[in-house]
Structure formats: C-alpha cells, structure tokens
Simulated scan of single mutants.
Amino acid sequence: MLVLLFSIIVFHIASATLLFIATIDNAWWVGEGFFADVWRVCTNSSNCTEFTDSFDDYPTLQAVQATMILSTILCCMAFLIFLLQLFRLKQGERFVLTSIIQLMSCLCVMIGASIYTDRRQDLHSNNPEFYGAMMAEGSYGYSYILAWVAFAFTFVSGLMYLILRKRK
C-alpha cells in the first residue's frame, strides 16, 4: 500500500510541476527567432515585450492566464487536502474532496489550453505591433504541449483519487 501511496504522490507532484512549467515558461508559440507565451513575446532572445491593455486580444490572454494560474493553485490545494485527508479519514472513506478539486484543476487546464488553441491564429496575426509578420509562421512550443499533458495527468489523478480507498 505504501508503494501505491508513494506513486500517487509522485504522480500528483509531477502534475503540479508540469502545470508550473506550462504556466511560467515562455514557449507556447515558437518559431525562428521568436517565442511567445501568454505573458509576453520575445524576439532574438533578448527583446521581450509584455502584453498590455493596448494589445487587441488582451482579454483572451487574460482568460488563458487566469485559468492556468487557477489550475496550478487548485492542483497544489488538492495535494495539501490529500495529505490532510490521508491522516484524518477513516478507513474505507474516499478522497472525494481531493478528487473534485483535482478535476476542477483539470477543467481549468483544458479551458485555458482550448482558448489558446482556438484563438492562436488571431493572437499571432492580428497584432503586428507585438508580433510582426514572422509570428504567423511558427509552431506550438513545449509549454503548450506540457499544458495538454498536465491536463491528462490531472484528469487521471482526479479519477485515481475518486476510486482510491484508504487502507492499512
């Protein structure tokens, strides 16, 4: 049973780590000589421009920022609640609260990554003052991919907590 609990804890920490990296790192959209995320765009690895209110699709980016931050916070909260429930629940009780919070984190990641996926073309082609013409040519970066991997991890983790029963 200790091996099972240890693997669940490691899986949850991996989920939280993926969420932190996906939220913070600047590699959601990359190309030759530039990289962008939901916070800023950088060209030539040194010229970085933060997104501001003057950016045409700033509300869209704020939605992605908010959902990614919320998913990270919820994932960390779920882990702390799991640790509290681990020592406080009676045998046979389920980790329902942990599961619900983890599944809410999963939902937030899905919403944030889906909004970015849907609006990516508008974000990178309708704002030449931030991106320029070269930004339309590029591909999704590893932070974007990690966001979707974190979605899968948090979903599986939420389901594991839902069916997990505390045993000796």
Rank of each mutant, 00 (worst) to 15 (best):
A16P: 02
L89M: 12
P59F: 05
L19E: 12
L103N: 03
Q121H: 08
Y140M: 14
V96A: 11
D57V: 06
I163F: 10
W39C: 01
M110E: 02
T117V: 03
V10D: 00
E50L: 01
L4P: 00
W28C: 11
R88S: 14
G141S: 06
I100N: 01
Q102V: 02
T67R: 00
F87G: 05
A136Q: 15
I81A: 04
I81H: 00
H124G: 03
E93H: 06
T52A: 09
L164K: 00
L159F: 10
A63C: 10
L103M: 03
L80D: 00
L61F: 10
Y116K: 09
D118M: 06
V96S: 09
N26Q: 12
M104E: 07
R88N: 12
K166I: 10
H124E: 12
A152M: 07
E50V: 12
F153Y: 10
T72R: 09
F55G: 11
W29D: 15
P128W: 10
F130A: 13
A147F: 05
C76N: 00
V109I: 15
Q121P: 05
S125C: 14
E93D: 13
C48K: 07
T52Y: 00
Q65W: 00
R119I: 05
C76G: 06
A36K: 07
V156M: 12
I9G: 05
L74G: 09
I13M: 06
M110C: 06
